[in-house]
Write a protein that binds this DNA or RNA. Structure first.
Lengths: 144, 144
DNA sequence: CTTATTTGCGATAAAATTATCGGAAATAGG
DNA sequence: CCTATTTCCGATAATTTTATCGCAAATAAG
């Protein structure tokens, strides 16, 4: 469904959020330990998310990554996915046609329309805060 | 969503089905022209589908690929997908956890459960005959 | 200003996916 | 049998994705 990069990015964002809720900045080594992802690769992805304003970073000692708690409610999963994987999951054709719409649909089009819109809706309505709270309360996990 | 290999495989199966409904065998060159996929790669995929009994092939002159019309109703898209991409779309965790279930869920688990089961259901209930008929009647297209 | 720390970034490498090539095996027809 | 045709199959190549490495840039603290 998502690329590895996207999976890592979402999980990293969630972990940083849980620590930012406690007022802690986190460094990359910390993140990858808690998320189970490769360090340099994850750093690249986070760098991308920084550029897109979804997370902030600070270099040097006492530096690391953080997300302002006030923003966590408004940051939705779809934004993270869009930055890393683009919008092909929602917009692209399930069978790879260059163009595919109700007028000239691929054979699976009608079957996919509903599923895609539900996926999009789920990602649009799920906030980072909600996901971070799941981890905080121990209801969900980031690694296994 | 699906791999390129899977997209090609599904479209090739649909095209072969439309021709088999007319009693025609089709060769690989014919298929890739109608489906817009690379020849040798598509041949590999079809070979895989032959091994798994979803389509039959015949070598030599007047040979090619065919699907018995009587089987088209019982061949569901999920079988094609399973042969080519496996079942990770239905069974795997959306965030890549090795194990992820209602007891120890990833943060997105509850959001994905419904979408995945609907996707699975759609693929389970969509038959090759149905898709081939869409092409036959001109309601859907395979290439663009 | 110097040092230690940490992200940023470009180059590179490894692995997976997608794609091509050449020839072997099968088969229909003359 | 011989030939033409077509799938099958192993090797290889190209591309994309995933991952690593080394060093530059920034920054906090003494």
């Amino acid at each position: 469904m998502f690329s590895k990069a996207c999976e890592y990015g979402i999980k990293a964002m969630i972990y940083v959020a849980t620590q930012s809720l406690k007022g802690d900045r986190v460094k990359i080594g910390d993140i990858v330990e808690k998320v189970g992802s490769p360090e340099a690769f994850t750093a690249k992805i986070l760098s991308d998310l920084v550029k897109n304003g979804l997370i902030e970073s600070l270099k040097g000692p006492y530096g690391g990554f953080a997300i302002q708690p006030a923003k966590m409610e408004s940051i939705k999963v779809i934004q993270i996915v869009s930055v890393i994987d683009g919008d092909s999951i929602f917009r692209g054709c399930g069978l790879g046609l260059a163009e595919c719409n109700a007028l000239e649909p691929c054979p699976m089009h009608s079957k996919f329309v509903k599923i895609r819109s539900e996926l999009k809706k789920a990602l649009e309505t799920t906030s980072l805060l909600e996901l971070a709270n799941g981890i905080k309360t121990g209801k969900t996990i980031l690694i296994r």
